[in-house]
Amino acid sequence: MRSLRLIAALAILLPLPAEAHRAWMLPSSTILSGEDGWATFDTAVSNDLFVFEHVPMRLDGLIVTGPDGNAVKAENATTGKFRSSFDLHLVRAGTYRASVANEFLFANYKLNGETKRWRGRVENFEREIPREAQDLKLTQSFQRTETFVTLGKPNTAALAPTGKGLELRADTHPNNLAAGETARFTLLLDGVPAPGIEVEIVRGGARYRDKPGEMRMKSGSDGSIAVTWPEAGMYWLGAEMQDDKASLPKARRRATYNATFEVLPQ
């Protein structure tokens, strides 16, 4: 089980090219009506978007934020061979955000001529890495994967940024997207607009197309991106950055953000 977690975590750290593994969360519905409702969420790391064929995403860092900005309990959480799932009972009108957010330190080093890998918390680093380790390379990783569901009239309390890691400020509501229209978002790094962040957007069902049809762009000087949706469907958005501003000396910082949106016909 420990090795499975490490594989999943390392997969999330892979770069953005089309052949890379992608982390995603997929809701059964994004817009519901009535006084209450249920949504089921699947989450995994895979080569093909929204297809269970690699490893599940662990739910250790799962946080669901309700329409009033407070935490909501997920139900029936389970992790299988290829995916993790959970249910959400929506009992209050408005928008919910489901996120898996984690912070880890990854180490690669050599010990007695053998290559070793370690994943853990920053505070455990000095205690768990041998002092005689050689060729030590550290990466401090911030990972966030999320999606959005609305019951009735949408609102924005659940969308407030946390101010930690790489996030997306929804200047256009994520449950109000339509084919042919342009949505505007802002990439934030630790709560501050982040320019020059590489973003990839892919519509689901790519395994059934000759060309994946990715859209690629970089955030502007104010961290903003504008996305014109070519057609209806479920879309994955991925962003990644790296720099040398980790909290540990000589460590690299890497932040990744993944989100799933439903784009409806006009």
Rank of each mutant, 00 (worst) to 15 (best):
71 A>C: 02
105 L>V: 13
88 L>D: 07
103 E>G: 13
93 A>Y: 00
73 K>N: 07
64 V>D: 02
75 E>P: 02
105 L>C: 03
95 T>S: 14
102 N>A: 14
106 F>G: 00
83 R>D: 11
69 G>C: 01
78 T>E: 12
107 A>M: 05
87 D>I: 01
99 S>R: 15
104 F>C: 01
71 A>P: 01
85 S>I: 14
64 V>T: 04
79 T>E: 13
78 T>Y: 09
74 A>Y: 08
67 P>T: 05
70 N>D: 04
96 Y>F: 13
78 T>W: 08
84 S>R: 06
97 R>V: 13
98 A>P: 06
98 A>H: 05
71 A>V: 06
104 F>P: 00
88 L>T: 13
79 T>A: 08
102 N>W: 00
67 P>M: 08
99 S>Y: 02
103 E>Q: 13
74 A>N: 08
102 N>I: 05
74 A>V: 09
88 L>G: 11
79 T>K: 02
99 S>E: 15
72 V>W: 03
91 V>K: 14
71 A>K: 12
92 R>S: 07
106 F>C: 02
108 N>C: 00
85 S>R: 14
91 V>N: 13
85 S>T: 15
103 E>C: 07
75 E>K: 11
100 V>P: 01
68 D>S: 10
84 S>Q: 07
72 V>G: 03
64 V>L: 08
101 A>G: 14
101 A>R: 15
84 S>N: 04
66 G>C: 12
71 A>Q: 12
66 G>W: 01
96 Y>T: 04
76 N>A: 13
82 F>E: 08
97 R>D: 01
71 A>Y: 05
90 L>I: 11
73 K>V: 10
84 S>K: 10
94 G>H: 04
107 A>S: 09
100 V>T: 08
109 Y>S: 06
104 F>K: 07
77 A>M: 10
68 D>I: 02
